[in-house]
Nucleic acid binder design. Sequence first.
DNA 1: TAAATATTGATAGCCATTATCAATATACTA
DNA 2: TAGTATATTGATAATGGCTATCAATATTTA
Lengths: 142, 142
Amino acid sequence: MEATLDNLKSILAASNYKLTAQRKIILQILIDNRGEHLSAEEVYNIVKTEDPGIGLATVYRTLELFCELGIIQQLTFDENCRRYELETGEEHHHHLVCSKCGKVIEFNDEVLEEFESELEKKYSFKVTEHKIKFYGYCEDCQ
Amino acid sequence: MEATLDNLKSILAASNYKLTAQRKIILQILIDNRGEHLSAEEVYNIVKTEDPGIGLATVYRTLELFCELGIIQQLTFDENCRRYELETGEEHHHHLVCSKCGKVIEFNDEVLEEFESELEKKYSFKVTEHKIKFYGYCEDCQ
DNA sequence: TAAATATTGATAGCCATTATCAATATACTA
DNA sequence: TAGTATATTGATAATGGCTATCAATATTTA
């Protein structure tokens, strides 16, 4: 289920967290920038235009909390910079990252799901998460 | 082609780098610990037993250089800790990482290669690198 | 409305990695 | 083989994204 400003309070309450103005603003920004893969710093810069008093630590904490609650998902295209995207509740998808212009193309594929099942059998390994990224050059940069 | 103490000099020379005692020791350690996925800090601790005077920066620089030359490959199972493994010249492989005990199981599969080719066609994207990791629980930790 | 609890902002701290730079080592050249 | 240009080293300061701390404040519950 995708998070909205309306159900945020109940999502938080279900885990004994409280609804605050800061959390609402940050969720709103993530929704407004759906598909943007924002970093904490970028969220901070946007949020400051609406609430200049907000602290950087609050942004980091809120993003971490939203991850824990499954509202967003953490991505790391480049190390030393974590990015976040809204969890849509739809199929999981993966990314093609252009090494030149930085463009990110999303794809999803059930082939990977099948592959995962095979691995689980072969290695008696229970997969709970996967990180799959392809790096290279997009159409414009080749 | 896999790097050895014998061909290290020519690999370096081909890119205008020089052979040094430090580079030899570090390569030797990587060879001795094949399959260990060492971090820079770990390499540093081992190297100090053979050459106490070596600097940490040299270890970092050498590992970076070896990556650039294709002698080793960088891995990131856990963010904020980069690990390295020898490039064997054989098939590429990927990793299953146990979230509980940290065990790393290696696998390789041509299914992924095929999948990559399909992606390239579909998105007009030239893949140069992929990072594929599955996280979960190994046989002992389930 | 009060009390219990969670959250916030400011800021100091962390820690793996990088940059700086003078001293030194390597490798080419004559 | 000595001289020279160039690359490398070790020590250490700096970087930078992120986290911990804590008193002040806000939210929720009773």
